[in-house]
Amino acid sequence: MKTVIFGATRGMGRALARLLAERGDELVLLGRDPAELEKSAKDLEIRAGGAGHDRVGTEVCDLFDRKAFGSALDAAVQRLGGLDAVIVTAGVFGTQDELTDDADLLDRVLVADFVNTVHFCEEARLRLLESGGGKLCVFSSVAGERARRTIFLYGAAKAGLSYYLEGLDHRYRGEGLATICVKPGFVRTSMTAGLDPPPFTGEPDAVARSVLRAIDRGRPVVYAPPIWRWIMLTIRWLPRAVMRRLRF
């Protein structure tokens, strides 16, 4: 698979890129910091050494510089000589308290996780359709499923993103472009370091394995760890009056 990953230097993106590299997929990494991209590309090349492909490309791409999305993707496609999949794990996180107290951080979260991720996906969609379809896999969050008092600012951006991704899948699946919306629950990464891990906490490697399965099968929505599918099903059906009393 010829794959572009935006956000592969850390967390779940790093774990997913390793699985792809170890099975021999061709990769181009997009990210903001050239030195970090270089180190991650080298890591993936060494890991892939046994799998046949040992070149991983990099292109600088900043989630806050949306004018550069198109050219970064073009460079990646050219390098890969085609395009089968685009994966987006990049984003910005803030807790409810942090976002309540800091309007600038809130602005960054809303712009990065909703506005600019949508812009990036639009650019990716054009190029995937041009090469005959493929997979667009984007990391949203269970926080975007139902508004909860403890995480609704970050959740609002992710809710918007999930909404967009569902529409994208409805519109273009018939043309060969499958959109995969990943909804991780609490996963033990540096993003969540310092927060109290709730029950059903996931590990990045396990999440990456279920996401990769979903990409291969073109499943439109994937919860990770999988138990969150049932947790969110319950939460979605809770009456508003009950939701208001929930403390988490």
Binding site: G7, R10, G11, T89, A90, G91, V92, F93, G94, E98, D102, L105, R108, A112, T189, S190, M191, A193, G194, L195, D196
Partner: peptide, 11 residues
């Protein structure tokens, strides 16, 4: 994912 306060710890 970016975090303003990367990996801030708790006791």
């Amino acid at each position: 994912m970016d975090r303003r306060n990367p990996g801030a710890g708790r006791e």
